[in-house]
Structure formats: C-alpha cells, structure tokens
Computed example of a mutant assay.
Amino acid sequence: MTSRYIAIDWGSTNLRAWLYQGDECLDNRQSEAGVTRLNGRSPEAVLAEITHGWRDAATPVVMAGMVGSNVGWKVAPYLPVPVHFPAIGQQLTPVADKVWIIPGLSVSRDDNHNVMRGEETQLLGARQLAPASLYVMPGTHCKWVLADNQQIFDFRTVMTGELHHLLLNHSLVGAGLPEQETSPEAFAAGLEKGLCEPALLPQLFEVRASHVLGALPHEQVSEFLSGLLIGAEVATMCERFPGEQAITLVAGKSLADRYQQALSRVGRCSTFVSGDAAFQAGIRSIAHAVAN
C-alpha cells in the first residue's frame, strides 16, 4: 500500500497543506498563519494545528516556500545553479522528526545575483507537465528560468508585480484615483508602449500626467500601468533570452493570459501551466519519494 504523506506550501502570509495517499489528495487545508503571521506561536504549533488528525509517527511532511528562509522555521540553504533537477529533492533540510524543507536556488556571479524560494518546487512540477527550455513565472517577483530537461542553468527576477502595487498605492502615480476597473483596451495600450519603449524611468510619471490631463481615464490607470510594466519586462527579458526556446508560463490563468499576450506580440509562443498544479506536482514528486 502506498504511504501517506503531507505536502505544505508555507509562504510569508499564507499556509496551504495537502494530505496525500500516493497521487490521491485525501484532504486539504489553508491558513493565514504565514511565517510572518505566527502571532507568537511556534512553527511546530502551527504545523500541529494545520495537520491535526492527519499524522501519525510515520507520516512524512515536506514543506516549501518562505518557511525555509531567514524569517521562517529554519534556513534551508540555497543550492547554487547550475543544478540538476533531482538534486532539489535530495538535499532537504530536516526541522523535526520526518519533517523537511525543500532548498531554494541561487545565482551569484558578477553579472547576476538572484535567489528563489518556492518557485524551485513549481519548476519540478512544470518540468513534468510542460517541459521547456525557458520558464516564465509571473507574480510579485517574476522569475525567468533557463533550463533543459536535466538541469536549471540560470534565472533572473523582475519585480513587476511589486512595482505595480507600489506605484499604484504608494506613489504619486496612483494618488487620488477612484476604484479601478478592468479594461482590456487600456492594458493593450500600456502593453504596446512598454514593448516599444522598455526604458521605463522616463515613462512612469507620464502615467500620472496622462490621467491628470484627461488622456487616460482615471478608472483605467491600473490596467494601463500593468500593460506598461509587463510590456517593458517582456521586451527586456526576451532580449536577454533570445532565440526560439519553448516557453512555459507558470502562473494563475489571468496573469498568464497577460504574459501570453505580451509574448505573442514579440513573436514568442508559450504554453500555460497552472502555478498551483505545478507546485503540487513538484512537491508530490519529492514527498512521494520520501514516503516510499
């Protein structure tokens, strides 16, 4: 009989847990007890709470995400790239009896200093579900990852999601705006500008000037800004990763659609894999091996 195991995605602000028997998910739970929101509780106590009734002494737990960072339970050291995919699951950090954390990945060169934590688990799953030589992982900090079927060679990070949030909520660009609305037209207009003029710094204040002067509807600033930032990111990163590589987008559907639109405009085809599906496939591959 295939053993039970528990897979956990433990980030800064949220925690998600799945109980598996082989490849069958028996139950799942989620909590707002991310590693920065423990409210005085220990990680051990939070783990016991989220897995209550699931575990016996033989049930292994494999965790990924910020739980392995310097603000988490215990630092799970970064593996430097290039790194072979199987090595990710072979260098787990133990934190309690039959409880492990998956390592992050790092790049440290004169031309590139980068880290990831959590995305490496998504990469393991994306490699199974939609193998590619370039993985684009949109989100708060978008990762562009160069790989083949055997190993990860390099990656870069673009702070597109965070920059959009900061500009819209904590800068003059978004000051005084009403509630924002969805607008494919405003997004497409921003995307075109970002793709054609990816040097962003001179353009950011123009976003404010455009809505102050009436050239951009006040309710559509978020959409235009999203298109501008994603367009600039895609234009810049496609120059850094030129060629005809197969591209797999690992993200939620709505965000992946925006990046697919941008990639299509520069002549790059892409395949979409749900970020959740990729994460679960990746962590299951590690946890299943540990359990058996």
Rank of each mutant, 00 (worst) to 15 (best):
V95K: 03
S12Q: 11
A64Y: 04
P103I: 01
D154P: 06
R127M: 08
G243Y: 05
L123T: 01
E206K: 09
V136G: 02
E233G: 06
L26M: 13
L168A: 11
V99Q: 13
P184S: 06
G139V: 13
D56C: 13
L263G: 07
A45Y: 01
A175R: 10
D111Q: 14
V207P: 05
A277Y: 01
A175S: 04
V115R: 02
A232N: 11
T59Q: 08
N149K: 06
R16N: 09
K253Q: 12
G243L: 11
S210G: 04
A33W: 07
E244Q: 15
F224Q: 05
G282N: 05
S171T: 09
G282Y: 01
W18S: 05
Q21A: 13
E239D: 15
H52K: 14
D257K: 03
F272T: 04
G252I: 14
D9F: 03
H218Q: 15
Q203L: 15
I247D: 10
H52D: 14
L167R: 03
Q150L: 10
A278H: 10
L255P: 02
S133R: 14
C25H: 04
A186S: 12
I8R: 03
N169I: 02
E185K: 12
A64N: 04
W18F: 11
L167E: 06
Q30K: 07
E219K: 14
G243E: 09
L92P: 12
T248P: 01
L79N: 09
L38D: 08
H218C: 12
A186R: 00
Q203F: 05
Y5M: 01
G11F: 00
S106M: 12
M137L: 15
M237T: 07
G161S: 08
C196N: 15
I102L: 14
A175F: 03
E192F: 01
N14G: 05
P43D: 00
G161P: 08
D56E: 12
T160C: 02
A175M: 04
T182M: 01
M1Y: 00
W54C: 11
D97C: 12
R41A: 06
P94A: 14
N149D: 09
D27M: 02
F241H: 10
N28G: 02
W73Y: 09
A188R: 12
V67I: 15
V273D: 00
V75F: 13
T140M: 11
A76R: 04
L163N: 03
N28C: 10
C196Q: 15
A76P: 08
E162T: 03
N70R: 13
D111Y: 10
L195N: 04
G40Q: 03
V107E: 11
E239T: 15
R265T: 06
